[in-house]
């Protein structure tokens, strides 16, 4: 039994010490760069947790960075090259920046211009990202305004008959229309509720004859 008892082996301390701190620095030379900067919060002070909703996307999510409480961010292990750094926030718009890192580890930050790709407008590095504006996702519901109300077809429907009522009496003064109206009046007397179609036909036919007579009268006048 003793033979099978568990035993502990103590091996000498063969600790091979490697300096890991040096290894990290070595690697920076091998094209492992960092992109750093700071995101400024939106103006409004009452926004809680904007840090959690804000991400840094490099080349559309190839590298993703997160921001700290004070808005600073660092993206690690980026090989040399050209990158579009954008701040993604669901409510606020930030301008993207193109960061170029050459093989020697030199940085240049410039404005993104997709149309004139060779145009260089430098921006400071480390990046300082400021919100441009709030996204306007929504249409604004129309507010109640007097002009809107007046030009509302419904209101016009109400107002136009009123106007007609105002104008009609003046038209009454014209003797020819008076006659037409009399005819209509006669029709109205014949039946208490005249049929719409009849009323319209009589109105229109009457109107057209009146017009034609008017035109005739004018012609006569011209001849004179």
């Amino acid at each position: 039994m003793e033979l099978y008892a568990s035993f502990i082996l103590i091996v000498g301390l063969i600790h091979q010490v490697l300096c890991a701190a040096n290894s990290i620095e070595e690697d920076i030379g091998n094209g492992r760069n960092i992109i750093e900067g700071r995101v400024f919060p939106p103006e409004e002070q009452n926004i809680n947790g904007w840090q959690i909703n804000t991400r840094i996307h490099v080349n559309g999510g190839e590298y993703i960075g997160f921001i700290r409480d004070d808005g600073t961010f660092v993206i690690h292990n980026v090989p040399s090259g050209s990158y579009v750094v954008e701040v993604v926030n669901p409510d606020y718009m930030y301008e993207p920046v193109r960061v170029e890192i050459n093989s020697k580890g030199k940085y240049r930050a410039r404005k993104v211009n997709y149309i004139q790709t060779s145009q260089v407008i430098q921006v400071p590095y480390p990046l300082r990202m400021k919100p441009l504006s709030k996204f306007r996702y929504f249409q604004i519901r129309e507010q109640w305004r007097l002009t809107d109300f007046l030009f509302n077809p419904m209101v016009i429907m109400m107002v136009l008959p009123l106007l007609l009522i105002m104008i009609l009496p003046k038209m009454m003064n014209d003797p020819e229309t008076k006659e037409d109206l009399k005819q209509i009046g006669n029709l109205a007397k014949m039946s208490e509720m005249p049929e719409m179609s009849e009323m319209f036909t009589s109105l229109f036919s009457g109107g057209s004859t009146a017009k034609s007579t008017n035109a005739k009268a004018k012609q006569v006048k011209k001849r004179q």
Binding site: L18, S23, I24, D27, R32, I34, G49, Q51, I52, F66, I67, R68, D69, V74, H76, N77
Partner: peptide, 26 residues
């Protein structure tokens, strides 16, 4: 990550990033 690795610390209540450092294995 997978060599290089990133070590990050987060605040558990809010989820905000607290610290971050990178580690590359030889």
């Amino acid at each position: 990550g997978s060599n290089p690795y990133l070590v990050r610390g987060w605040d558990s209540a809010t989820g905000v990033l607290l610290w971050e450092w990178s580690l590359t294995l030889q």
